[in-house]
Design a protein around this nucleic acid. Structure first.
Lengths: 182, 182
DNA sequence: CGCCCCATGTAAGCAGTTACATGATTAC
DNA sequence: GTAATCATGTAACTGCTTACATGGGGCG
């Protein structure tokens, strides 16, 4: 359900092609929604059937033709209606936590290796987010309201990665301790 | 994929019925894996077909009969094999972040209401986790290795909720500011 | 010569949710 | 009496992933 509303949300700002939307999902908005291009195209078709978006074919030379999708009035109404509904937090699933839950079944070396890989990922994600913050949201006073909203979603990414990193540190020191005992 | 491995992980400690596993998913392990009872029963059947678990029928009077599932040797081998594979972090999806991304489309009152509901949820979750920590993991020195691993998964829950709460505070102060402007 | 970017999709399948179904016992 | 706990499942459906498919242009 929420992928459809993500698309509506992104189209509420400007027209985009399915390709654009897929790239958004891979880059800027990846920390709160993600999607493959296949899913995006599927949902765009369905949204169009439902009259929530419509597209305009754009012919290009030297590049493939494309379809610029925009949100309709009905789509805008639906988006706002959805925004007024209370949000349900989805329980997160994390396979590394399952592994750690029964961590005594394998050697700490293996878990440590896996952990350090993840720590690295979280570190670089946070770095990327902090760079975006420095670049686009440096001076909070001068930001427009829409910009401040977008900044808050970025803040969520930063705080989330920071929390992951503190946790990784706790796990790392425990696993290293285990290694020394063995 | 990971639900099947969650079941194997839980069964690696002790035999459980589908009902038990469903309740685990609702209570103790909810913050890293969740499942409905229907999904659990479905996966148990499949795991049994694949020879990774097997069950023993237990007749009860005054209560419905039940099936006690245990992990097999093959299941144990598969679990350990899975644990040695690098973990892929799943991108999280959060509908409230989508709403906030285009937050200027509705009034701040509505968003604030939604936010405060979520803050409450995170607060009570964290309180519940902290209580468990105080009750079962107070004195770290005396904990067994399996207990320390379980404690680390709980720590993840605590740090995650704490991060959510800091973020909620940031959003709250912004939304209240917006309200005063209007 | 192969790989990445642009741009769109179909088809098959897996994972998970929601609705429906049964039925006895215990607690308020 | 009505709700909760114990205990198991089937059926229909949605959401999402993975594999497959096409095809020109630019870069090294």
């Amino acid at each position: 359900m929420s992928l459809k509303h993500s698309i509506l949300a992104l189209l509420s700002r400007e027209s985009k092609t399915g390709y654009d939307l897929s790239r958004d999902a891979e880059n800027s908005t990846r920390f709160f929604w993600s999607a493959t291009h296949q899913q995006v195209y599927k949902d765009l078709s369905r949204l169009e059937e439902e009259g929530l978006v419509h597209h305009q074919a754009i012919e290009q030379n030297e590049k493939p033709d494309k379809k610029a999708y925009s949100i309709t009035k009905t789509g805008m109404k639906e988006l706002k209606h959805w925004m007024r509904q209370p949000s349900e937090p989805k329980p997160s699933k994390d396979e590394f936590l399952i592994k750690l839950f029964v961590g005594d079944l394998v050697s700490s070396e293996i878990l440590l290796e896996d952990l350090l890989r993840q720590k690295d990922l979280h570190l670089s994600k946070r770095e990327r987010y902090l760079e975006i913050e420095r670049k686009y949201f440096k001076d909070r006073k001068t930001l427009s309201t829409p910009q401040r909203f977008r900044h808050l979603t970025l803040r969520r990414g930063i705080l989330s990665e920071t929390a992951w990193l503190s946790w990784c540190d706790e796990v790392e020191s425990f696993l290293r301790q285990q290694q020394n005992l063995a």
